[in-house]
Amino acid sequence: MFKKILFALAILITGFVVLVSRQPSTFRIERSLTMATPADLPFGLVNDFHRWHFWSPWDAMDPQMKKTFDGPYAGPGATYAWSGNDKVGQGKMTILDAKPYERINIQLEFQKPWEAVNATTFTFQPAAEGSVTVSWIMEGHNTFVGKAFSLFMDMDGMIGKDFEKGLASIKTLTEQEAKNRLEREAKAKAEAEAAAQAPAPTDAPQATTTTP
């Protein structure tokens, strides 16, 4: 009986290993959102790690999360390391390349609760007039553990949900700033036009004196 149980377990384990090994060796998670804003506004929020706390879905998961910034203030070479609770773990991001208002490439390194290195890309594609479609993409290789997790958890759904939250926050922030920018420009234009139409000041009459 004991041998039969061991044999059955061996079959189950072998079957599980075969099933896991047949899972995709790579993954790609992508979400996009169109925003009524010029591309420079969302680009600026992503290109500067110091501004991620305004929109990142993970900052809210651990307000006490420790952050370290290094390298240039923004753009290629800038790094952002974090260490927090079980929900956010520990890791590091590095901006590898940034083409203004078009694309930002980031290397994403997870250190805890597991180790992994993934490629993250943000793209900014012109949409309707005055709008831009922002895409958030993460790609990487699945280890055996990652393949096993994919059998029980919908990684695309879990991470994709966070991407959707982050993009929605970027949309809210940038659309408001775009509106404020238009209002400032309209006010400045009105003030300039009013100044141009104002009558030119006349010279004050000079005092005259008479000789007695």
Rank of each mutant, 00 (worst) to 15 (best):
residue 1 M to F: 11
residue 2 F to C: 00
residue 2 F to I: 08
residue 3 K to V: 03
residue 4 K to Q: 10
residue 5 I to L: 12
residue 8 A to N: 00
residue 10 A to V: 06
residue 10 A to F: 08
residue 13 I to M: 09
residue 14 T to D: 00
residue 14 T to C: 09
residue 14 T to I: 10
residue 14 T to G: 14
residue 15 G to H: 04
residue 15 G to K: 04
residue 19 L to Q: 05
residue 19 L to N: 05
residue 20 V to K: 00
residue 23 Q to Y: 03
residue 25 S to Q: 12
residue 25 S to V: 12
residue 28 R to F: 01
residue 29 I to L: 08
residue 31 R to L: 01
residue 34 T to V: 06
residue 35 M to E: 04
residue 35 M to T: 03
residue 42 P to D: 06
residue 47 N to R: 14
residue 47 N to I: 06
residue 47 N to D: 13
residue 48 D to S: 09
residue 51 R to D: 11
residue 51 R to N: 14
residue 51 R to L: 15
residue 53 H to V: 07
residue 53 H to W: 04
residue 55 W to T: 06
residue 55 W to I: 08
residue 57 P to G: 08
residue 58 W to K: 02
residue 61 M to Q: 12
residue 61 M to L: 15
residue 62 D to K: 05
residue 64 Q to V: 07
residue 65 M to W: 02
residue 66 K to F: 00
residue 69 F to G: 02
residue 70 D to S: 15
residue 70 D to F: 02
residue 72 P to C: 06
residue 73 Y to A: 11
residue 75 G to H: 11
residue 76 P to R: 04
residue 77 G to W: 04
residue 77 G to Y: 06
residue 77 G to T: 09
residue 79 T to N: 11
residue 80 Y to S: 07
residue 80 Y to N: 05
residue 84 G to Y: 09
residue 84 G to K: 06
residue 88 V to C: 12
residue 89 G to W: 07
residue 89 G to N: 09
residue 91 G to R: 13
residue 91 G to Q: 13
residue 91 G to A: 14
residue 94 T to M: 14
residue 94 T to E: 15
residue 95 I to W: 10
residue 96 L to P: 03
residue 100 P to I: 06
residue 100 P to C: 08
residue 102 E to K: 10
residue 104 I to M: 01
residue 107 Q to Y: 04
residue 109 E to M: 10
residue 113 P to G: 11
residue 114 W to S: 11
residue 114 W to M: 14
residue 115 E to C: 01
residue 116 A to R: 08
residue 116 A to D: 13
residue 117 V to C: 11
residue 123 T to A: 06
residue 124 F to C: 02
residue 125 Q to G: 03
residue 125 Q to A: 15
residue 130 G to S: 05
residue 136 W to Q: 07
residue 137 I to M: 05
residue 138 M to W: 00
residue 138 M to Q: 09
residue 138 M to G: 00
residue 141 H to G: 07
residue 143 T to N: 02
residue 143 T to S: 13
residue 144 F to M: 03
residue 145 V to Q: 13
residue 150 S to L: 04
residue 150 S to R: 04
residue 152 F to R: 13
residue 153 M to C: 05
residue 155 M to G: 02
residue 155 M to H: 03
residue 155 M to A: 08
residue 156 D to Q: 13
residue 160 G to S: 09
residue 163 F to V: 04
residue 166 G to C: 06
residue 169 S to C: 04
residue 170 I to D: 00
residue 170 I to Y: 01
residue 170 I to F: 01
residue 177 E to S: 07
residue 178 A to Y: 01
residue 180 N to C: 02
residue 181 R to F: 03
residue 181 R to G: 02
residue 183 E to V: 10
residue 184 R to T: 02
residue 185 E to F: 05
residue 185 E to T: 07
residue 186 A to D: 06
residue 186 A to T: 07
residue 186 A to L: 07
residue 187 K to A: 13
residue 187 K to T: 10
residue 188 A to H: 08
residue 190 A to K: 12
residue 193 E to H: 12
residue 193 E to A: 14
residue 195 A to N: 08
residue 196 A to V: 05
residue 196 A to R: 09
residue 197 Q to Y: 03
residue 198 A to K: 14
residue 198 A to Q: 13
residue 200 A to I: 15
residue 200 A to C: 10
residue 201 P to S: 08
residue 202 T to Q: 12
residue 202 T to C: 01
residue 205 P to G: 02
residue 205 P to D: 02
residue 207 A to F: 06
residue 209 T to D: 08
residue 210 T to D: 03
residue 212 P to R: 05
